[in-house]
Nucleic acid binder design. Structure first.
Lengths: 190, 190
DNA sequence: GACTATACGGAACGCGCGCTCCGCTTGTCG
DNA sequence: CGACAAGCGGAGCGCGCGTTCCGTATAGTC
């Protein structure tokens, strides 16, 4: 259904597109969304026109980046689900996301902070992410490793909060303490 | 030393200044920092020139708002310290801040998110806030109500994260669950 | 090697916003 | 009540950034 590409995209065009995505991701993650589009183009070594041919709008560029990154997270969740114990699997996934927050979700939250919402900008990515997270959560709850009164939406909200801390706070020691508080708080309660 | 006012400020000028602060606070908290300065002036019923006479720059306006709000939080912490048990006092303060986050700290974090840092913009306010928070934390730890391996900076980081959730997530029920997780995680650990 | 569709670069445009300037109004004080 | 400083309003300036346009270069094809 969605697998036909009318025209296979010229070689240089494909290269430029990939390079733009890469550079844009790194730049936005590191310096925020206010970086001018022209600057992205410059760093990628292309003209502004080229960027706009691939991504007709700045927001379209965001969308492409987010979709890409979220997909990687979903894949990671899938692997954990197959290879680890329910409780540890959930915590490991949360830890991974929080540690990677400075770049991955940090970007996503930067979007939310500026008024752009992931669920709006890339509904498909959002949905498959939530599904993957839900699977991990339910298994952990069934195994009795996590309190039963919370749902996926709660966990997602927790992630948003924790990655905000990550961006805000500092050293690795603090991160460890934050993670310790999180797992203590999630444990099945009296 | 700092208690002399060369000129007592004319009556209408004082009124306009207060009104501007009020309107700017509400507007920025509700709609983000990208609201144009002219719009603030319009809603306050004054001209742009008037706003700029009181606050020579948009950032100066932020600074004035933040200093004002943080001071209120510090006062609140002082009252709690005198009137409540150590453990509950800390949790009550955290809960207050988190519940008020959508307006108060939400603004502060909005600043941080856009590259402005409270500690830079209003160092005095930041310092007295941290002192007040520290006092509550230390008392709670001495009473054995909160684990001893965390410090003020950790608590501040937690607050940043929790208020991010607050802005992000939704209903009151979810907020309660988040608070429950927080207090469970903070309790003195094995 | 020549021809054409495809893609590129970067100058230029328009708009929005922070900030300034100055002629007019209004509070204040004798 | 009259005079003067203090304050006001809002048109306008300049700049930065998102977006467009079009003449030029280059990959793909025979």
């Amino acid at each position: 259904m969605t697998a036909d590409q009318p025209r296979p995209l010229r070689a240089d065009a494909a290269r430029n597109r990939a390079r733009l995505l890469e550079v844009a991701y790194e730049t936005f993650a590191a310096e925020g969304l206010s970086v001018p589009v022209d600057e992205i183009a410059r760093r990628a070594g292309v003209g502004a026109g080229t960027l706009y041919r691939h991504f007709p709008t700045k927001e379209a560029l965001f969308q492409a980046i987010v979709a890409d990154r979220v997909q990687r997270l979903v894949d990671h969740a899938g692997h954990l689900r197959e290879s680890a114990e329910p409780g540890p699997a959930l915590l490991a996934f949360l830890a991974t996301m929080i540690r990677a927050a400075a770049t991955d979700l940090g970007l996503a939250e930067a979007l939310a902070g500026t008024g752009v919402d992931i669920a709006q900008i890339a509904p498909d990515a959002e949905r498959s992410f939530m599904d993957a997270l839900d699977a991990l959560l339910v298994r952990a709850q069934q195994a009795g490793a996590v309190r039963g009164d919370i749902d996926v939406r709660d966990v997602k909200t927790l992630l948003v909060g924790w990655q905000a801390m990550q961006r805000y706070g500092g050293d690795a020691d603090q991160t460890d303490r934050m993670l310790s508080i999180l797992s203590a708080g999630l444990r099945a309660s009296p």
